[in-house]
């Protein structure tokens, strides 16, 4: 009996010892991960840039646009009950995101992947935007983004680039091309009036320059749109601010944005198009509203 008890004790000790060693090894490994292989600086700057761009105070003037929500509400004279307004808002948000993903997202992706094509992308996006109201909104925000780049980001991102001249990697090289493309586009905007500076392709190009990973850039593009529309809904008194945060935080929105990016990842700009035709009418008829609080 005693022998077996002793056996059990030694076994227990052995287990405890093994567990301790395992934990020790694990902690050493994770320390190695944290300290031994630091993440690349480019990823860090990308994360920082993502935070910069996600700030709703970024002076893009997006607060002035409802992307058709105001017109949608006017076209659906709803019962005053907030429940029906809220349900109908959620429908609008879905349709609005689907539209943005099918019309603009391909241009974000292309602007990121092919910075040298920015002028063509800008022209083609302009050609594909059928109504004055949507064009105005897109151009206003695109130009604002370009101004933010020129006045606030450019100095930082172009100098830090030339400082790290120790070894020129291919990533540096491609970033340089993107910066050059951005510079010449910005110069051309001042010279030629056929350049419009639409938001979508510029968003792609600028996030590329700021080293934001493409998936994050695309996610933020759609997320910002959702935030803008939701914030417009708060100001149009469709819902309260807490309800708004609830919609923004919902896993439904997260899944939708991820799904839309997945779906549009390989879509060419030639195949961008309108999936919700009535959206063009809502946005286009915004001009006909008797009273307006938004620009779109």
């Amino acid at each position: 009996m005693t022998a077996s008890l002793e056996d059990q004790q030694t076994l227990k000790d052995e287990i405890a010892d093994l567990e301790r060693r395992l934990q020790d090894a694990k902690s050493r490994l994770s320390q190695n991960e944290l300290v031994g292989t630091p993440s690349l600086p480019s990823t860090d700057t990308g994360f920082h840039a993502l935070l910069l761009l996600s700030d709703s105070a970024l002076p893009l003037g997006s607060f002035a646009f409802s992307s058709g929500l105001e017109s949608y509400l006017a076209h659906h004279k709803l019962a005053a009950s907030s429940i029906s307004q809220f349900t109908s808002f959620k429908t609008f948000l879905r349709l609005s995101l689907a539209t943005l993903a099918s019309t603009a997202l391909p241009y974000v992706l292309a602007g990121y992947r092919h910075p040298e094509d920015i002028e063509t992308l800008d022209n083609d996006f302009d050609a594909s935007t059928p109504c004055t109201v949507a064009r105005r909104a897109s151009i206003a925000q695109g130009r604002a983004l370009l101004t933010v780049w020129d006045r606030s980001f450019k100095a930082q991102y172009t100098t830090s680039h030339s400082e790290s001249e120790g070894q020129i990697t291919s990533a540096d090289e491609s970033k340089k091309i993107a910066i050059e493309a951005l510079k010449s586009f910005s110069a051309a905007l001042r010279k030629f009036d056929y350049i419009n500076a639409h938001l979508a392709p510029l968003w792609g190009l600028i996030t590329r320059v700021l080293s934001v990973p493409l998936r994050d850039a695309a996610y933020l593009f759609l997320f910002s749109h959702a935030r803008t529309v939701i914030s417009a809904a708060v100001r149009a008194s469709v819902m309260g601010p807490y309800q708004a945060q609830n919609v923004l935080a919902s896993s439904e929105l997260q899944d939708r944005i991820r799904g839309l990016i997945e779906e549009g990842w390989d879509r060419n700009v030639e195949d961008a198009g309108q999936t919700v035709p009535v959206m063009d009418l809502w946005v286009g008829r915004h001009e006909k509203l008797y009273s307006r609080i938004f620009n779109s």
């Binding site: 689907a98 050609a127 939708r256 919700v276």
Partner: peptide, 26 residues
């Protein structure tokens, strides 16, 4: 050649709207 206008209508199952096509048409 330069693109002057593109009007592209896409009605299919894409868009993650969880809505029937008919419901999207208002």
């Amino acid at each position: 050649k330069r693109l002057l206008l593109r009007d592209n209508l896409l009605l299919d199952k894409n868009g993650h709207t969880n809505m029937q096509l008919s419901d999207r048409m208002d």
